[in-house]
Design a binder for these strands. Structure first.
Length: 223
DNA sequence: GCGACAG
DNA sequence: ATCTTGTCGC
């Protein structure tokens, strides 16, 4: 079994390296990436997918998948140690260098400020935004039913991100800075990448690739 | 002690 | 995350 006390100490060291600012108002990326992880072989193998999209069209320019044996069980608060290896393997296969990336999971909206998006961000040192579908920690005021509405996510009297109603009749998204982005820019760019679905395009497409949705891969290989 | 708990 | 079809609601 893993030594979580040791992993906790490592998280604290990495968390100290997280930069919660970046992306000036005039920032214009050429490529935006999206990353997500799935599992196969009864959960013994992690399958990470990273997609590269053109900005502002958000059309896919590249997509890579990496399979890596799982070394740790899923334990809330320690997810990054489970998924980072596979994500890094996919990252090394890329031929494009994105200026911004979205990852399925929390950034600093984590008990020790080091969710997957922050862990990966600090490791590759590029701007990363965390997009989670569920809350890990923190509280927030109720959201209205209006699409686009948002509320700050608070944890121990500090804002750790935003809760965003990205689409009508859908559960909200939990947006947080991963690395080299501010809370506001994380929210801004997430909104910029929304195209009518609950998830922003980078994460939505990475999820489609990682989960190998039937018909999606066939769709990619055609045209 | 009890409840919460990303993917 | 994953095992899985149809079904109710907007």
């Amino acid at each position: 079994m893993a030594d979580f006390a040791l992993l906790k100490a490592e998280q604290q060291l990495l968390a100290a390296q997280v930069v919660r600012e970046g992306l000036s108002p005039d920032f214009v990326p050429r490529f935006i990436a999206g990353g997500d992880t799935g599992f196969e072989e009864n959960g013994t193998v992690a399958r990470a997918a990273i997609v590269i999209l053109h900005w502002p069209s958000l059309e896919m320019a590249e997509h890579r998948v990496a399979r890596v044996p799982v070394t740790l069980p899923y334990v809330p608060g320690y997810l990054s140690f489970r998924e980072c290896p596979a994500l890094l393997a996919a990252w090394q296969q890329l031929t494009h260098r994105p200026e911004l990336m979205f990852i399925d999971g929390h950034g600093v909206a984590h008990p020790r400020g080091l969710g997957l998006a922050s862990h990966f961000g600090v490791t590759v040192d590029i701007p990363v935004i965390g997009v989670a579908k569920r809350r890990l920690c923190g509280d927030y005021q109720a959201l209205s039913a209006t699409p686009g509405d948002c509320q700050p996510l608070m944890y121990q009297q500090r804002q750790t991100g935003w809760v965003l109603r990205s689409k009508a009749r859908c559960n909200p998204l939990f947006i947080s800075a991963g690395h080299r982005v501010s809370d506001d820019m994380a929210l801004y760019w997430t909104r910029q990448c929304l195209r009518g679905y609950r998830l922003p395009e980078p994460t939505r497409l990475a999820d489609a690739v990682a989960s190998q949705r039937k018909g999606f891969l066939r769709y990619l290989n055609r045209q």
